[in-house]
């Protein structure tokens, strides 16, 4: 599903150039559950952004489902990402002005799914994640665990082939963290490919493969 070859990513500020990724080569198969680990600043999130088509690598090759996407424009990346990749973040990244229902509905809206179908899918995922009773709440009115469940619901509501999670349990207590990881495992068992970035050995234990990153390289 994913294949990279010596990808590099540089960030340039006014006077400093930082290399976040330094020649990462990896492959992820359909149905894998991969954990990316490493110390802070080693390039984990940058790698996840590149893999999730949020950013282009500065150098190197990247094939997503067999398509060379390394030099895709933002428009093309958006088009490919839509409905294919779901994201879960440590800080949830829900939109404050939208209710729980509207946050989950958002990707379906951009996919152009008709309203009735959207309703069906959103209700189904909310039931599955036990957040139906919070449908009309705004994110700031929810606990951290509930917010992360909403974020997961939003990521999976389109039935994506790939879910990328950037420290999904980082802001949660152990109970809620466990729930989220169980959820991801369940999705993986249903066939969704999952890549998570984590500091936690316990979370990494859910993965069937662990990639360690250090100074932008796989070690």
């Amino acid at each position: 599903m994913i294949k990279t070859e010596a990808i590099k990513k540089n960030f340039t500020t006014e006077d400093v150039e930082t290399r976040a990724l330094n020649g990462v080569t990896l492959q992820v198969q359909q149905g894998d559950f991969v954990a990316i680990m490493g110390p802070s600043g080693c390039g984990k999130s940058t790698l996840l952004n590149v893999l999730g088509l949020l950013d282009n690598p500065t150098e190197g090759k990247y094939w997503f489902k067999g398509i060379d996407v390394a030099e895709f424009t933002e428009d093309k990346r958006t088009s490919l990402r839509k409905g294919t990749i779901g994201f879960v973040f440590q800080s949830f990244n829900l939109i404050d002005d939208l209710t729980v229902y509207e946050n989950i509905e958002l990707p379906l809206l951009y996919m152009g799914i008709p309203k009735q179908e959207r309703q069906k899918r959103v209700n189904a995922i909310m039931e599955r994640l036990d957040i139906v009773h919070r449908a009309k709440y705004f994110p700031q009115q929810l606990s951290g665990g509930q917010q992360q469940r909403v974020a997961v619901a939003r990521a999976v509501v389109t039935n994506p082939e790939l879910i990328l999670a950037d420290e999904p349990t980082g802001n949660l207590d152990s109970k809620n963290g466990l729930e989220v990881m169980e959820l991801l495992r369940q999705l993986n068992l249903e066939g969704t490919t999952i890549i998570i970035v984590t500091h936690s050995q316990r979370d990494a234990a859910y993965a069937n493969r662990v990639i360690n990153l250090f100074d932008g390289k796989i070690i």
Binding site: E74, S79, F87, N93, L94, I95, L106, Y110
Partner: peptide, 16 residues
């Protein structure tokens, strides 16, 4: 900026 980023991550195109 953040809201737009989240929307883009969730599939919003530039036109959206």
């Amino acid at each position: 900026q953040k809201e737009v980023a989240i929307r883009k991550i969730n599939g919003a195109s530039r036109q959206d």
